[in-house]
Write a protein that binds this DNA or RNA. Sequence first.
DNA 1: ATCGTTGCAAAATATTTGCAGTTGA
DNA 2: TCAACTGCAAATATTTTGCAACGAT
Lengths: 130, 130
Amino acid sequence: MTVCQRRNTRQRQVVLEELRAENCHPTAAQLYDRVRQRLPRISLGTIYRNLDILEETGQCVRLCGSASAEARFDGRIEPHLHHQCRACGRVRDLETMLPVLDDMIGRNVEDHRVDSFTLIFHGVCAGCRS
Amino acid sequence: MTVCQRRNTRQRQVVLEELRAENCHPTAAQLYDRVRQRLPRISLGTIYRNLDILEETGQCVRLCGSASAEARFDGRIEPHLHHQCRACGRVRDLETMLPVLDDMIGRNVEDHRVDSFTLIFHGVCAGCRS
DNA sequence: ATCGTTGCAAAATATTTGCAGTTGA
DNA sequence: TCAACTGCAAATATTTTGCAACGAT
C-alpha cells in the first residue's frame, strides 16, 4: 500500500486496541474474533489491511508468515543468526556468534525450556543500499 | 505425521542435497524448481512432505510460516524476546533482556544494516511440561 | 468534495490430504 | 511382503484484491 494521508477510522483504532489488549500474539483470525465482538460488521479483509498499515507505521510487529513471505527452510541446522533484507526479502546466514544465545540452549528462560532459537535481524542489506 | 520407520528414498535424498546446496533459504516452491531439474516427475506435495520429515528428524530448520502457523502480530513494538511452545504453539513475551542484541540496532552485522530483530526461542513451555 | 477506507465476494497464493500405484528394507 | 512413500488432483487454509458505497478531514 502506498504512503498517503492515513485516516483514523474506528476500525483501525479497535484493531490496535484489541491487539494491545491481547498478550498472546494473535493471528489475524484470532484478532478478527475479538474485534468482531465490538464491531460486528467488520470484515477479515479490513483486519488484514489494518495490520499491514499498523506494521508499516511501526505500531505493531509481524512475527512471521504471510502469503507473500512463505516458509523458508535452512539446511544448516546448528543454531546461527540470519539477516533478512527489507528491500529484496533475501535471507542470509551470518557467521557472527552470540554465545549468550547458544548458552540458553538446554536451559530455561522464565521457566520455559529452550531447545533452539530463531534469530532474524531486519534491515537493508549491503547490496540494496549501494 | 506419525513417527515410523523412515525410508531413504531418492526424492528425500535429493531434497536434502539441494536444500544444503542452496545458501539462500529457499521456499518450498524454489526448492521444487531446483529438485525438478534432477527429478522431473517429483511433485510439490512430495517436497512439502519431505521438508516436514526433514524438520521433524532435525535435518533442516523452518524459518517461519506454514499454513498451520499463520502470521502472528504483536502490539508491543519495542524489541523483546519470545518463546514459542512446540507442544501448544503459544507465543509468549519474555521480560529477559539481552543487551548484546539491543546494541546491534542501528549498526551493521557483516555489512548489513540492522533496524530491528525477531528472536524466538523454541521449546516446551512450563504449562505443557507439568 | 476528495480520496482513504470499508464490507463483501471473488481471486490468488500456499499448504495439506485422499487415493491408487510404487518402492525400499 | 508390506508399510512408507510417491505423483496427481482435489481440498483447505491463508492472504490479497476489485469494486461500489461510505465516511474522515
